[in-house]
């Protein structure tokens, strides 16, 4: 479980703390609590697992089991830019595979990983729902559609340049 060093680093976030305090004992609150923890920290730190286990009376092992069952929950923090690669059917038939490969080559990370500089996290998602723009990638809140490997490379260059300027 959480080491002392980790404990010192993690401060209980107010929103998450309130939720624990108010609803921790109610039935069926485990998933909303995990969602609140992730909203507050950006991921689920070991300390949050301990606290949730204590508040709900559900063993930490079971909490961990629920975390790993659902795709939404992360045990690692995210990079600065989250890249969501759409893996929906429409994107697949329009060449999403080449888009993933290009991302892997360009960033040196695979799906679910964060680049060493902490800039990018690459996530594959089932469907972003803009099928007529296939293939699609979302960087942060912005969707980039009708991508080709070449266009994706130039989009990534722009994002990098902007980040470098502190944007």
């Amino acid at each position: 479980m959480a080491t002392d060093e980790e404990r010192a680093k993690v401060v209980v976030m107010p929103a998450f703390g309130r939720m624990l305090w108010r609803h921790g004992g109610e039935p069926g609150m485990l998933i909303p609590l995990l969602q609140a923890a992730q909203d507050s920290y950006g991921y689920i730190p070991p300390l949050a697992i301990e606290q949730i286990a204590m508040a709900t009376g559900i063993p930490a092992s079971e909490v961990y089991g629920v975390i790993t069952f659902y795709r939404q929950f992360r045990l690692q923090p995210l990079g600065r830019h989250v890249i969501r690669v759409c893996k929906g059917t429409a994107c697949h038939v329009q060449g999403a595979e080449m888009i993933s490969r290009t991302l892997e080559e360009e960033l040196g990370i695979r799906q679910g990983e964060t680049s060493e500089d902490g800039l990018f996290t690459c996530l594959e998602v089932a469907c972003l729902g803009c099928c007529s723009l296939a293939p699609v990638v979302m960087i942060g809140e912005r969707a980039y559609g009708r991508l080709t490997p070449q266009r994706l490379r130039s989009v990534l260059r722009t994002v990098r340049r902007k980040t470098g300027r502190g944007a």
């Binding site: 972003l128 803009c130 723009l133 559609g145």
Partner: peptide
Amino acid sequence: HTVMVGLGSCGIAT
């Protein structure tokens, strides 16, 4: 006049 902008997820993505 009433101007209605289509802002479903697909409209926003575009």
